[in-house]
Write a protein that binds this DNA or RNA. Structure first.
Lengths: 233, 233, 233, 233
DNA sequence: AATGAATGAGTGTTCATTCAT
DNA sequence: GATGAATGAACACTCATTCAT
């Protein structure tokens, strides 16, 4: 079967190291050294470190987008005019998310990369994700909208991101959290366990009652927030 | 009143830059340049960059721990033998979280730092946080346990971290998310608005029904997870 | 007619880029990229960058030498035994210089390359020029010698190079100088204008009176030079 | 007496290497290696290679400007209302040009650097020279103007640059030219000899008759220029 | 005859840290 | 107590050249 070619070796190594350490902390020397390819090969094949980072993402996002579109097509065919229940939508997404990295390396890597893309100052990454992922996500949101007609649009937007935070945080910090859980509760959780645990939580989160008070009364009703004098903005 | 002293100037500048760019992407030159102090001052006052990062955290975590302990003391005094409801516990934590950065700079910075601590390869940071924050968090978890007696311990652990993910993700990516929300829904959300919105979601998440099937049947019952052949570990 | 072949495309592109930026600042990637040929084509067709530089020169110098020989032949035929006046000699050279690049790209390119050959550490270039251009130049100098019998040989040598400096400097820095002239005097000068302007100056320079004092008294008579204590060597 | 400090060592070494090879062909490693200083010292002291190049120039241009101003002051004081003759002006400039490098290292280096600044694509250098040298040069041109009232301004501009070309070309290629002269004419010329030789040539060049034909008849009168069909622009 | 892939040596620059003062 | 100078190691990236096909 032989060695995978240079580009693949670089991508395989890069995604692991990026996930382990972050982008800035991973040097091209780290990557090329571990991948046993020439240092200049990265710039030859990808042009720059920035482009390599994008290429690492592309390997996940492109098949994910494609499959997710297909999965949504299938759902729409199944349900016809009927509303697709929220549970089914989320389940479908989860299944697709899990499928793609399964063929590559690991969910953790994918999530870690997503998390880094949000939390690190990689503007170009966020833009790339928006471009690549935007259309299918918009489609998904439209279906979620039908499944949650009682939610105002803005509310739905925020809840989806609350949930996204849960997913990304959990899976990107998977090792650390798993270590603690194992130490404290003596149980080793698999990704499947976690998804099973996450499922009702996410559904409940999306279906939570609206906050008390209309938006226009925001300031007055919530007891949750003290009046910080300072720079809480 | 004059200038704040060198150490404070360094800390003030560092926390902003760390939050904006991440740890690796922020050089000591960036910090000392912006803070208008000598380059060697960081190593002089803090010993190393690593220690500076910890010092930046300490400024948040120490008062946070202290206040959180105090808030819990107050709650326990109030409720005596009675169980403190989950809503009250979460509300108390939220209030404390918001109070501390309010006196310093911004919630966003604090959350960003927390998020980075989890997502970046800063093992020393995670350890530090555990040390500093562990005891009060344990105390908090014990009260949450009383408030959610139906939850298995492990389940509670994970749900708390699911929720932590929501909070950290939302606030550390605040600017980006706010931009999108403003563009798409034409509304500017304050931190207070967000907390108000997050509140019922978080409560619902904690109170969600248990996943179907016992833990021992994990593999068999969930329809959420496909059987990836690959490296989903 | 179609595209010119690969070698020509490389030469055409290289001469422009060399003239614009210099040799070291022009990479083979620059050239092959702009010429839309394969990167390896330069080494394939020319063997090395050094050889390419020489080839670029050759395209000018060879036809120039040939034509200049021919022009001198014609002059000698015309004047027979009579002395060819200096003006005519210089005019002939100027005409030939201007003719050759006219068929290729531009005078500026030629001069720039000449200037670079002198000012940069391209020993191989200087040697090449000597070889290619030496014989016809010797022939020319012999005629100049007849036209300026009063000049000692060494004096003539230097004056020809003084004049060469004028020509190369002016035309190789043409764009910069033209910009200044246009800004300051509001007139756009063409190459023809410049040659017309240069002509009487060059003739006057060649015909200038000999410096006061014989060569053997060099040290004592000239008031032009102060006694630098230093490394004026 | 001890070693000169790091900055000076870098400047001393850099100017020699730049003059010998050009800017692009001289690496910071060349410089720091020969100067026996740390590689990072260049960026520490000068910020960048570009700035180092400018600093190398500044060491010549600044004292030159200063002295030239002073020399012109002295001339004006001497001559009062009377016109300062062209010879005196040129002589004064020559003396100043020779004085400055004499205290530093060598005229050749200075000229070579000047030539490089014109012939290489160092836009930032040309700008720097313009800034640093512009005012005193303007002053000088004003005096030359009085000394050559018959010359149109544009004509004077060009002739000064013709002459500048002679000077820069001769001195920056000094070694090569001197080698040839020595081989062919068996005489070793000193810089003083060269200046003595150049002097009447330069004066004659400035005083040459105006080109035949007015500017508006440029095209029609000069026999010097053939009509190139091509890109002679 | 021509080229995509690859490479080793080199570039300028930045880094956190150290040290003499 | 504080800092300007310096440093070795590392950085991303570019280079001309080579080579298998």
């Amino acid at each position: 079967m032989g060695q995978p070619d240079t580009m693949t070796r670089i991508l395989d190594t890069a995604e692991v190291l990026f996930a382990e350490r972050g982008f800035a902390e991973t040097s091209l020397r780290n990557i090329t050294g571990k991948a046993k390819v020439n240092l200049a090969a990265v710039n030859y094949h990808f042009g720059s470190k920035k482009s390599l980072i994008q290429a690492v993402f592309a390997r996940y996002l492109e098949p994910f987008s494609e499959r997710f579109h297909a999965a949504i097509d299938a759902l729409e065919a199944d349900y016809g005019e009927k509303v697709i229940p929220l549970e089914v939508l989320l389940e479908t997404m989860a299944r697709t998310v899990l499928e793609v990295p399964a063929e590559k390396h690991s969910l953790k890597v994918f999530m870690r990369l997503l998390g880094l893309a949000y939390s690190q100052a990689q503007g170009h990454l966020r833009r790339y994700i928006q471009d690549e992922f935007g259309t299918v996500f918009t489609r998904f949101v439209a279906l979620v909208r039908e499944a949650t007609p009682e939610l105002p649009d803005a509310e739905r937007f925020w809840r989806l991101h609350f949930v996204l935070g849960t997913v990304i945080f959990t899976f990107s910090g998977l090792d650390a959290l798993r270590d603690i859980a194992e130490k404290d509760y003596g149980e080793h959780v698999s990704v499947r366990d976690l998804v099973r645990r996450m499922s009702p939580v996410v559904v409940a989160a999306m279906n939570a009652p609206l906050p008390e008070g209309g938006l226009e009364q925001a300031e007055s009703t919530s007891a949750l927030v003290s009046e910080g004098k300072g720079a809480v903005n």
